[in-house]
Structures are given as C-alpha cells and as structure tokens.
Design a protein around this nucleic acid. Sequence first.
DNA 1: CGCGACGTTGATTTGCCTCAACGATTGTGG
DNA 2: CCACAATCGTTGAGGCAAATCAACGTCGCG
Lengths: 190, 190
Amino acid sequence: MNIDLLLGQLRKQSGLDDADCAVFASKLRPAKFKRRESLLQQGQVSRDAAFVLSGCMRAYSLDDNGFEHVLQFAPPGWWITDMYSWISKKESNLCIEAIKDAQVALLSRDDQLELFDRIPKLERYFRILAENALVSTRTRLMENMSLTAKQRYHIFLKTYPNLGNDIPQKLIASYIGVTPEFLSKIRGEK
Amino acid sequence: MNIDLLLGQLRKQSGLDDADCAVFASKLRPAKFKRRESLLQQGQVSRDAAFVLSGCMRAYSLDDNGFEHVLQFAPPGWWITDMYSWISKKESNLCIEAIKDAQVALLSRDDQLELFDRIPKLERYFRILAENALVSTRTRLMENMSLTAKQRYHIFLKTYPNLGNDIPQKLIASYIGVTPEFLSKIRGEK
DNA sequence: CGCGACGTTGATTTGCCTCAACGATTGTGG
DNA sequence: CCACAATCGTTGAGGCAAATCAACGTCGCG
C-alpha cells in the first residue's frame, strides 16, 4: 500500500510540507477492492471518498428500468465518491465499485473538514479539485447535448487513453450514453 | 445597486464579519445588462464571474451547426461564469448574456485568488459553492442519460420554479436538450 | 468441460428531429 | 397610435439516430 501517488500530488500542486503530509496521511485509511466488489451501494450514506492508487473504480446509477449509467471512471490518481451523499450525509443514488482489483486510500468527510481547519493548503487543494471536476462535468454535459454518439466515443478514448482496450465495452457504452449494441455498430463502421 | 443579497449570503453561510465583507465588497464591480446584451462571447477570455442581483442571465454554447445549448440559468442569488475560461484564462466556449434586464456584481479571478489569501472564510464559501455546483451538474448529467424529455421538463420546472412562465420556451427546450417544436408537443400532451 | 458474461449482427420500433406552414404576440419606427 | 417586421409558439408530415428484441459465436473461468 503506497500512498505516494497522492502525497506527491499534494506536495507538487499545493506545496504541502512533510509535517502537513504526515497529518493528512494519518487520516487516510487503506483499503482493497476485488473486481465487482463495491465501496458504496444505492441507499447507503457515503462516509468515504476514495483516492485510487491501483486498479480502477467506477461510479454509476441504476435507473427505474434497471439500466446502469456510468458517471465516472477512476483509474489511479483519481478521486471518486458520491459527492452528493458524501457532503450531505443523505442516502446515495450511486453505486461505486471496482472494475479491476483496486487499492485505494479512504478519507471521511468529517476528517476532511477537520483537516481543513488545521491545514489551509489542503482546503485549497480540494477547492481546486472541485473546480476542475465542475469544468469537466459541465463540458461532458454540453458534449452530451450537442455531439453524436460516435463523437462522444472518440472523446472518451482521449479522456481515458488507457481504458479503451482495458475495460468491458458495455461500460464504455454506458458512459457515453448508448446501448452496448449501438456502440458495437459505431466501432464496426471505422 | 444593492449587493446585500450577496453579502447576506456570505454572512449567513460563512460567518463573514463586517470588516471582511467590506474588503470583499471593495473588489466587486457593479454592472448592468439589458436583455440580449452579453457579458461574455465565445472566443473571449472570461475575466469576471457574475453574481446576479436582479433580472436573469444564461450561459450557453453554440455547436458546429449553429444550435444553442443552455448550460445554466442564473436568476437573482446565483453566480454565473464560464468556469473553464475563468480559471484557465483560455478562450471561452460559452456565451453569457441577459435574458431579462439584469444587475450583477462582477468579480475577477485575480481578485478572487488574492482575497482567498486575506480571507480564508471566503475560500471556504467558494469551495462549498463549487462542491454544490458539481453535485447539481452531475445530477443533471445523469438525468439527461436516464430520463425522457418530458421527465426532464418537469424537473426543470421544479429546479427553476419562477422561470417556467417567465422566459421564452425555446430557452427551456434548449436547457432540457430538445427542439422548441418537441417541447411544444410535450406540453400539449397533458 | 460447461456455464455465464461479453460482443456482434440483423429486423423492427420509437423518441425526437427536420422542414414547412401558420397564428399570435411583441416591439419598433414613422 | 398604427403598420409592419421579427420573434415566438403550435401543428403536421416525413425522416433519422438510436433503442429494442432476438439470435448467435466467443472467450475466460470455476
């Protein structure tokens, strides 16, 4: 279990010193998930956000007809959580599970808020993280409204260059918002 | 020009005192926009975010076929900006303009970042703002993937209860992601 | 080996778009 | 205050992108 991937990010992007890193690291809880094992299920309250160290996680919702819709993939270096449930402590609408055996570092919202008071640079790190996540989610929303499925597929390949050949295609279809059958047809075209 | 709507929010949600409020207020620049007048156009760099005091603004993108897609409405009490351009200082993909004569308070990113160093509570206010915006954008993204146009229309009416009868229907159609003709048919059904 | 998960392909259906025509409303200049 | 244009909402006919349903081959794994 090696959290240097995370601490390195913090040192580099936010200038945290060794003492701050140690305080932060003391609140992180390592965990492992096997493929298909879940960190969070619909209806539960999300206590922890996860920083992925190895493997890959995904967040998805289940609609009224039983279809899954992938909100986010989290390869190593990414945070993943149901932000809604995590910050409000209300019941989650999302499921989060591993799509490849994964090692993660967990952080509870309560610990995070406590750390913000002790380490202002950490609050800045997470503010910037939220800002960037907002930008990319808004971009994706606009792409969903204005582009065809084929265009969205090619954007997916650029956004997650290592995932295209590494995860089941039905998950990619679910991410770009089409059926597995239709993604197969798109790929067949060229 | 009355910025109490904004300062009240800050006092209540973030516990800013009078001195902090005064420092913050000194960086705000009042502005007015007539209907159809624009704060930002595609290709420009967004210097300012706007807090809407009266009237209503909207942010939208123009796709390759010349169609508009509304990302966000901003009635009084809401912030609006092209977050991507505002934080990166790169060329904007969005347009922002008034859909009803509006009074706003402008804040540049440079001033905002400078204020964060002087008033930590302000950084917290904007962190929470970004977190909440992220939650609602993600929710909308999932709704766009799993719900029908009719369901999205009813959600719009709940999200913006004062806008349903107050702005052109073609803007609502653009927000929920359908053509004006199709929204008209949805409304005719029931 | 055999079973379940996955990807592919084809026939058919459907939600929404396109294009066109037409009133109603708004607003703007004379 | 009216005339006219522009904008907007509605309605209908036809078309297309993507969904649905079903059948079938393949692969990894218990």
